[in-house]
Design a protein around this nucleic acid. Structure first.
Ligand SMILES: [Mn+2]
Ligand SMILES: [Mn+2]
Ligand SMILES: [Zn+2]
Ligand SMILES: [Zn+2]
Lengths: 154, 154
DNA sequence: CCTTTATTGAAAATGATTTTCATTATCAAT
DNA sequence: ATTGATAATGAAAATCATTTTCAATAAAGG
């Protein structure tokens, strides 16, 4: 029984094949960078780290890759109100689990919290179902954020 | 019993006095514009309507006023992902009540929903309390958004 | 009416993201 | 392994929302 005759690529490569996207060095690097951190990174944050790995990579490509990964649902894009979009790997190897945010309006600290998620999810699902029905929406995602002031800034 | 000897200003004028802010034509107009609509308006949306009322008003001032109103909690600022901030009057005469959003990721339609808010609020309060305690945050606000595809776009 | 100083508008600056386009690299087919 | 079609890339320019600058204006307390 010789399964896996060909070495399978990384987890994300299948997704790329499915949509006819090519597997390139810049894309590998961007994903690697995202896997190496727990932060919510801006495009230029990613660019800076990617650039250290391979200085030939361009900021434009970082933007394009981030955008593509977002559309594939591999990363999630957020706006925490500081003028630049932020990205994080979710629900993937090396990525985070689905979670919600606690945002300090002063210093912009972001806390990922996963506590109470079971209760939240149950609640969310009920609401989601009622909303889909009433507004005839096909709901695919949600976000819950709490805003306030952190330990330091309160 | 002669109360109200002086004509009281509009509801928002007291707030302005409190912080030593002057009551000016541009500010009156921006607030009037916000009161006239139910939409989630961008700064330039507001500017266009304000400009019709008084063409001498400047876009810069619209930005400044919107920003000020946001800090006063008179308007709320949102980012629905189309590159420009959007504003709406909340919890004020002529404004909306606190509510949550349903967002079409294709056509960017935004639905304000207020159904199920009682249940949501109860749930939110519990979570908020647990989070404040655990992370020592002073939580002052929250946002819940559902993302998906509307009737037309699904 | 005066004086102080917050506010304003025009223009320039900023900064993130997007577009353009000539060059390069991936990969399926040979 | 070579080729060829074309997807992907990077540099530079373009966009575009928002912010900053600064001289002129106007609100409001006295
Ligand atoms: Mn997060
Ligand atoms: Mn709304
Ligand atoms: Zn803080
Ligand atoms: Zn739609």
């Amino acid at each position: 029984m010789v399964y896996l005759l060909r070495k399978r690529g990384a987890w994300w490569q299948d997704r790329f094949h499915d949509i006819g996207a090519r597997i390139t060095a810049p894309r590998e690097i961007v994903i690697a960078v995202l896997q190496e951190t727990d932060d919510h990174m801006s495009a230029s944050d990613v660019y800076i780290r990617a650039h250290k790995i391979n200085p030939s990579i361009g900021l434009t490509t970082v933007y394009r890759t981030l955008d593509m990964l977002t559309q594939l649902g591999i990363v999630q894009k957020f706006d925490f109100g500081d003028g630049k979009a932020r990205f994080e790997l979710v629900n993937n190897p090396g990525g985070k689990k689905h979670h919600h945010h606690l945002i300090c309006m002063n210093c912009k600290t972001i806390v990922d919290y996963t506590e109470f998620l079971d209760e939240e999810l149950e609640f969310i699902n009920k609401t989601q179902e009622k909303l889909s029905k009433k507004y005839n929406f096909k709901i695919t995602d949600h976000a819950i954020s709490f805003y306030g002031y952190c330990d330091q800034c309160r």
